[in-house]
């Protein structure tokens, strides 16, 4: 900081060069090292990858490794299994959550206050992961995608209801009234007036919930482990199965491939994703 200020600006003088250097160093050390380890190891052969280190592979065979895990790790099945569970669960929580939030945001009574408190308690309380399995067995849904979708919906409805109820209260009643005067019933008012206005908050909720469901392995292990392929479940198998033990080049090749879908979405929509998440968090 004591370096002489080259210009007249009153701003911190040395930060002009120090800050970019510090930024680059931080990125290289905190992100560059782990990510280089992944990429370089994924490009090695088995012997070289046995002990993962930072030296580049003597001969890159990244795509051969990709091809191998693509088949062995059942990537295609895992990808579609993840989609099969995530898409209905997210659409379900958005629609059911918005419907409930509209009523909870507009009407008030002691009973509804209790229902609201219970409905948002799932934000904080952990799901009863063991007895969910028991219940699903009793319902005949154990190991099925429908059971998994139901479990995720039960977990994330609270988040949607919390976000959307707060948002509904900021929508002027007059907008609904106008439609009602024209003879629209509640369903029409909700679909035509409320739902479109909820889009910004629903976008934020979608991002967060997709992130959680797409990457979830804990609840998936209990509910559909061994019965359905999802990308994280297959990674768990790839990494813990004897077949791949210590085969770091294959584990890391799998990690690169499985991260690509979300990474691509993020690259193309990063501005929206980042502003969506921050607007939801700090208000």
């Amino acid at each position: 900081m004591s370096v002489a200020a080259p210009r007249m600006r009153r701003a911190r003088p040395a930060s002009g060069i120090l800050q970019p250097i510090a930024t680059v160093l931080t990125v290289v050390l905190l992100l560059g090292v782990p990510f280089w380890l992944v990429i370089s190891t994924a490009g090695k052969n088995q012997a070289e990858a046995l002990n993962p280190n930072l030296t580049p592979p003597s001969e890159w065979q990244l795509f051969e490794n990709f091809a191998q895990v693509f088949g062995d790790g059942r990537m295609v099945l895992g990808f579609f299994g993840s989609l099969l569970v995530m898409v209905p669960a997210v659409l379900g929580v958005l629609i059911l959550g918005s419907m409930a939030a509209w009523i909870l945001g507009r009407r008030s009574s002691r009973g509804l206050a209790v229902i609201y408190a219970l409905a948002i308690s799932g934000i904080v309380l952990p799901p009863a992961v063991v007895t969910i399995v028991l219940l699903l067995r009793q319902l005949g849904l154990a190991g099925t995608p429908i059971g998994m979708i139901g479990v995720y919906m039960g977990m994330y409805l609270s988040t949607v209801i919390f976000f959307v109820t707060g948002f509904v209260r900021t929508i002027p009643q007059e907008l609904e009234e106008a439609a009602r005067v024209d003879g629209a019933g509640p369903v029409k008012v909700f679909v035509r007036i409320i739902l479109p206005l909820l889009m910004p908050v629903l976008a934020t909720a979608t991002i967060l919930i997709c992130l959680y469901i797409w990457n979830d392995v804990f609840y998936a292990l209990f509910v559909v482990g061994g019965r359905l392929d999802t990308l994280p479940l297959n990674l768990y198998q790839v990494a813990s199965a004897g077949l791949y033990l210590q085969n770091w080049h294959l584990i890391f090749a799998y990690i690169i491939l499985m991260s690509l879908p979300l990474l691509l979405v993020f690259v193309f929509a990063q501005r929206k994703i980042i502003s969506g998440i921050t607007s939801g968090a700090v208000k």
Binding site: I103, I115, G150, M155, P186
Partner: peptide, 19 residues
């Protein structure tokens, strides 16, 4: 309008918690 969300919450969240 509350019922579908409450049904899902009861079946997949509250009942397992009571269990």
């Amino acid at each position: 309008f509350l019922l579908p969300a409450l049904a899902v919450l009861v079946i997949f969240f509250f009942v397992p918690t009571i269990f």
